[in-house]
Nucleic acid binder design. Structure first.
Lengths: 187, 187
DNA sequence: GTCTATACCCGGATAGAC
DNA sequence: GTCTATCCGGGTATAGAC
């Protein structure tokens, strides 16, 4: 309760859930309106477009993501730190993570309006994981480790689909994922 | 040259490329027709629907996938064999692999008409990888290993997007991916 | 086998009353 | 803030001539 225009919040919650289940493109404004118990026109009082609903959902995790990217340049995080940070980021915004992975339209919307380079966003992370004298094998291992943190985290959490809010990642699970990723990274 | 109604084949090639780039939902019949140099009506002479074009593309890799699943029951393949088989399958049908991962509509079309159980298809693979006395940690490691073979294989091949046909997976790369997956799998 | 023309539907979005 | 009604565009698909 409290904070901000409650229907706006409800719309975002509904959208997050539907987008995660059916994808952004696969969800219509009418779907959201139905779940909300109103008509599509009512939605447009709160949001000027469907894309803006998406932006409303993405804003927060996107700054988190950029914070991680920023830390790559200022300090030099260890692989453990970096992979751990991505596990947490994925866990915190798992509905959005699946959505971004799955919907080309969403990916486009993100890269189009990103402060950062439009170029493949993960590339920088891979380079840091691979290290400075990265030969081809090292890059492959970096991809492998990154794949583990992203996919395994989602796999562990996906069973608890109901009750969208704060499904916590078990610390033991987190440790197991991180360990697997680090093994994949180091020969 | 030779084999079968050439325009039908050209349509399939074009569709495979466009579907991979823009997704199945993101590609219109008009897109395919334009690339083909004809109109949408002409397409419908060769295929009764857009979904049938997709089915035409999926048929072959789908039997390969089912062959692997079948081998799970008859013999007991080692983790190395199993993971290796998935690397090869992913490499051979990478355009389709991305498509399936990315488009919910495609996934639905597959599961709807699958001979096998409609239930999550990868589940069985995970169970085999995790082994018989699978505790939670073992299942996580199985997810990790599976994520590596799927994602890393695609990552290695994606740079060569042009010239869709037979981009071969370098044996050294394959070995590196497999090794990383096995390390993720075993504590 | 390919064309023009068109039917049909669905999704996003707007106008204007209440 | 929400409604009814409607526009518009794009997408799949069909009819029928050539």
């Amino acid at each position: 309760m409290s904070s901000a225009s409650s229907t706006k919040q409800r719309i975002l919650e509904i959208a997050r859930e539907l987008f995660a289940r059916q994808g952004y493109t696969g969800t219509s404004i009418a779907d959201i309106a139905r779940e909300l118990g109103t008509t599509t026109a009512a939605l447009y009082y709160h949001f000027p477009s469907k894309a803006d609903i998406l932006r409303g959902l993405l804003a927060e995790p996107l700054v988190a993501y950029n914070r991680i990217l920023g830390s790559l340049r200022s300090r030099h995080p260890s692989a453990t730190e970096l992979l751990g940070a991505f596990i947490d980021l994925t866990a915190d915004s798992r509905e959005l993570a699946v959505m971004i992975e799955r919907d080309p339209a969403v990916l486009k919307l993100i890269t189009d309006q990103l402060p950062d380079s439009s170029e493949s966003i993960n590339q920088q992370v891979i380079e840091v994981l691979a290290g400075p004298e990265a030969d081809r094998a090292a890059i492959i291992r970096a991809h492998a480790a990154f794949a583990v943190v992203k996919t395994a985290t989602l796999a562990v959490l996906s069973p608890h689909q109901e009750s969208a809010d704060d499904v916590k990642l078990d610390p033991a699970d987190r440790a197991e994922i991180l360990a697997a990723a680090l093994r994949a990274l180091r020969p």
